[in-house]
Write a protein that binds this DNA or RNA. Structure first.
Lengths: 210, 210
DNA sequence: ATAGCTCTGTAACTTTTGTTACTGCGCAGA
DNA sequence: TCTGCGCAGTAACAAAAGTTACAGAGCTAT
């Protein structure tokens, strides 16, 4: 575990902190598609991503979903952090986008390290910061972009996160993530294909523009 | 200034911190409609609201605007805080919703107090937290609500912030804040009036449901 | 009072998004 | 091989939101 921690966090945390994390943290691995954390869950620890990717979703009372953003290696989820520190229920759902490995750090340590390690304090602040800017971007796409642009952007983000231009995803899945209907997505994807921006296959999309 | 500080922040900050704020902070008053901070500005201090209200707007490259949320007494803007600590340009515009009084605290002190005062640290964390949840709410309204619901919600929020059911606002202004067109707003307002949820006057709307 | 302005109401139309319904393809399992 | 199922394509229609255009109401300054 210490080795993996070092690979992902070695350049921002000091040795002592890395050892503390290795001591108090619990290593978890989840398979693609697994729900790591759900809306309403009581959160008592926060994740430090080592490998893989996680997608963070929001849901309304009627059960409609919306993808907020992805987390990668070196990230943590500030919304979870916020739940932890505020001792409230989770506002979001976290689902493994790929097979993923991470360390869960218990809430008590989070606060303790905040006073003891400057690098940890910075990490926490930077997490809040990057999560705020991701949320801003999400708001931008919702407020200022049409569905066709949102779909293209979604595909590009997903390609980046999965480090592959070939995405294994169904139209229905995209529709869920963007909170619209399958027919709308199929329509727009077809248009994007005609514009040569993507290539459509069964269960599978190739993104040209990155 | 110390008196006002005490009224707004006395119950969360210790005496010593209040005095430090009074010493290092600069008191500012702005009139309704004044732009306090604009997109692209370099931010070197953060505001602590004493009185009044501020609205926070986002803009895209084409100049379309969107209201993100309001700030009230006792609030600070975590997005600004984030800019401060990250030494980056402002991502948002802040406009006085009413005549407003606040204290600007220079960036150096923010960091210093973070290490010296637990109450300050908590305040900063809680600001991040509440701003994150405001942003989540904004995302919810954009993703899950139709324009008619958004308009009603907007009016209710504005009434709350201004502590009055009678809002002095034009249809055009609402359209700007919600990033839509004046005609759409007029149409929906008319419908809300027929549903007895509001009353329309010239330059002026009465909100019934709060 | 009247000219000029801002603000509101409304009609008519377009575009975008959402809905329903049906077709056919391709794969997996009996 | 046939059946059933999930997935993709598409048509036809409905609803929501955006656009253009114009008329009239009310305020202000001369």
């Amino acid at each position: 575990m210490l080795q993996e921690l070092n690979d992902a966090y070695g350049f921002i945390f000091e040795k002592e902190l890395l050892q503390e994390i290795a001591k108090s943290g619990v290593l978890k691995t989840v398979r693609e598609g697994e729900v790591i954390m759900d809306i309403g869950d009581y959160i008592t620890s926060m994740p430090l991503l080592l490998e893989g990717a996680i997608k963070i979703l929001r849901e309304d009372k009627e059960g409609s979903e919306l993808l907020l953003y992805f987390l990668e290696r070196g990230d943590t989820c500030a919304l979870t952090l916020s739940c932890c520190l505020g001792q409230t229920q989770s506002e979001i759902r976290a689902v493994a986008e790929r097979d993923t490995k991470f360390i869960m750090v218990p809430i008590g340590k989070i606060e303790e390290w905040t006073t003891r390690f400057k690098s940890w304090r910075n990490f926490v602040f930077e997490s809040y910061q990057s999560r705020l800017s991701e949320m801003l971007e999400t708001i931008d796409t919702l407020a200022f972009m049409n569905m066709d642009q949102r779909v293209l952007r979604y595909l590009q983000d997903k390609a980046k996160i999965n480090q592959s231009q070939e995405l294994q995803v169904t139209h229905q899945q995209i529709a869920y993530d963007l909170n619209t209907s399958r027919v709308v997505i199929s329509r727009l994807l077809k248009r994007l294909e005609m514009e040569k921006k993507i290539l459509l296959q069964r269960n599978f999309i190739v993104v040209h523009e990155l």
